[in-house]
Design a protein around this nucleic acid. Sequence first.
DNA 1: GCTTTACTGTAAGATATATTACAGTATGGG
DNA 2: CCCATACTGTAATATATCTTACAGTAAAGC
Lengths: 150, 150
Amino acid sequence: MKSIAPGKGYLTGADEIVFLLEEVPRKLRKLFDASTAKFGLSRTQWRALGYIYRTPGLTQTELARHLEIERASVGHVIDQLEKAAFVERRAAVGNRRIWALHLLPKAITLLPSLRREADRIYDRVLSGLAKEQVSAFEKMLEIMSSNLED
Amino acid sequence: MKSIAPGKGYLTGADEIVFLLEEVPRKLRKLFDASTAKFGLSRTQWRALGYIYRTPGLTQTELARHLEIERASVGHVIDQLEKAAFVERRAAVGNRRIWALHLLPKAITLLPSLRREADRIYDRVLSGLAKEQVSAFEKMLEIMSSNLED
DNA sequence: GCTTTACTGTAAGATATATTACAGTATGGG
DNA sequence: CCCATACTGTAATATATCTTACAGTAAAGC
């Protein structure tokens, strides 16, 4: 369903920018969802695979921090990925509380394609912007992010 | 649970900016949630009130477009707001399919406080940025948004 | 006018995530 | 060594939202 930007009546100017700041990532999420769906994965599952790829042996708590979801939710995600043979929980040496997460071959063969999908989306969203613009944009995002720190 | 920014290993440069583009609005959502919770409202409920305020007599389908959620979900939101006596469904003249949404006094007295809360958050997120920076930022968001159109 | 098509809201069920409480395990201070 | 405390993953439950299907109503084409 197509969205409608806020009008100028009751709203402050800043409402406008916050609206866009919500809209752009939402559209990005939608594109990523479409890409990952081709592979039978959700965006969260795909992100999980990416982090496990980068740090094999990751624990669920660590993964939860990366994905910005709760440990309980990560448990579900890993359940799914394990059932689909993308991921394996291995007992960790010296600590019987935790699982060490590892990719299985089925996931590893998939990652390059997912990487290409992501890069295609990045090219698209940033097209028409100069390098300096993009880096200025990123710096501002960093400032905003730190403004909102705790 | 505290998040972790993506490292530089496996990830493209653009992953970084997309991460921030996700993180800033997430932090904003969190602040808005905290603000609206003081009034016993969810962020979506609060946004719904804002749109009904701006356009009394709005239909649920129109509201769904504004809120970027589905019609069925809007139905639930209005159920809640109606139960809490913030909103009223009134029969629309000349079209028996639709409801005209109207605020009740209880909601109207609340809106100024919510407005102040929002403005406080805006001041905070944009602090340290010059006016021209903010407008450049907004223009870039608009470009990105149109890059992602359909 | 009738019939087909489109629109509006709702119901039922699915999914993703959050919250809370907990059991099992580790760790650090005394 | 023992005890108190902290950490890890899971279960149960709650909530928000989506998807699909539908009933009622409106509008448009013939």
